[in-house]
């Protein structure tokens, strides 16, 4: 390598290091904004402002899906196995919606830490399983909260 080529190599390396450091700090500064959702544990710890819009994600708790007296409002509990949040939602639930399925709900959290959701999305995980082996996975998913200490990843 000739001296000029070495100088250019150092220059390119410096540009890369500089841009990486700048990006690192920019992302660090916006960290909370890049997070897509809050977990039920964060709601329990009071990391929210009442009457503000948030997204929360968690598993639909077993046996928690009910319909309110008005006949259209669906009420269910979302859990990360450590804390629960009650969600009220008027609308069509996604196809994948069922007990122990991870979902993302967007809406306003009221002063009683319950969410009035305007949108409910299903969140599928990274596991792909053929139909024949589905029972084993479904069982593992149903017992997710029993098998783990503390909060669960989804």
């Amino acid at each position: 390598m000739s001296p000029t080529q070495k100088t250019r190599l150092t220059l390119v390396s410096f540009i890369l290091v500089g841009v990486s450091i700048a990006t690192f700090f920019a992302l660090k500064a916006f960290n909370a904004n890049i997070e897509y959702f809050l977990t039920p544990t964060q709601i329990k710890n009071g990391e929210f402002i009442a009457e503000q819009r948030y997204r929360i994600a968690g598993l639909v708790k077993k046996g928690s899906l009910n319909t309110a007296e008005d006949g259209v409002t669906r009420i269910f509990t979302v859990t990360d196995c450590e804390a629960d949040v009650v969600v009220n939602y008027v609308g069509i639930l996604p196809d994948l919606f069922r007990e122990d399925q991870a979902i993302v709900a967007t809406g306003v959290i009221n002063s009683e830490s319950a969410m009035i959701a305007g949108q409910v999305l299903a969140k599928h995980d990274e596991n792909y399983v053929p139909n024949e082996a589905a029972d084993v996975v479904m069982l593992a998913q149903a017992n997710k909260c029993n098998d783990t200490e503390g909060s669960v990843k989804y």
């Binding site: 960290n31 897509y36 959702f37 977990t39 994600a57 990274e126 596991n127």
Partner: peptide, 13 residues
């Protein structure tokens, strides 16, 4: 690094 709606890595994990 962040929570997302998109799934995590299936192959390179």
């Amino acid at each position: 690094w962040w929570s997302s709606l998109h799934q995590g890595a299936t192959v390179f994990r």
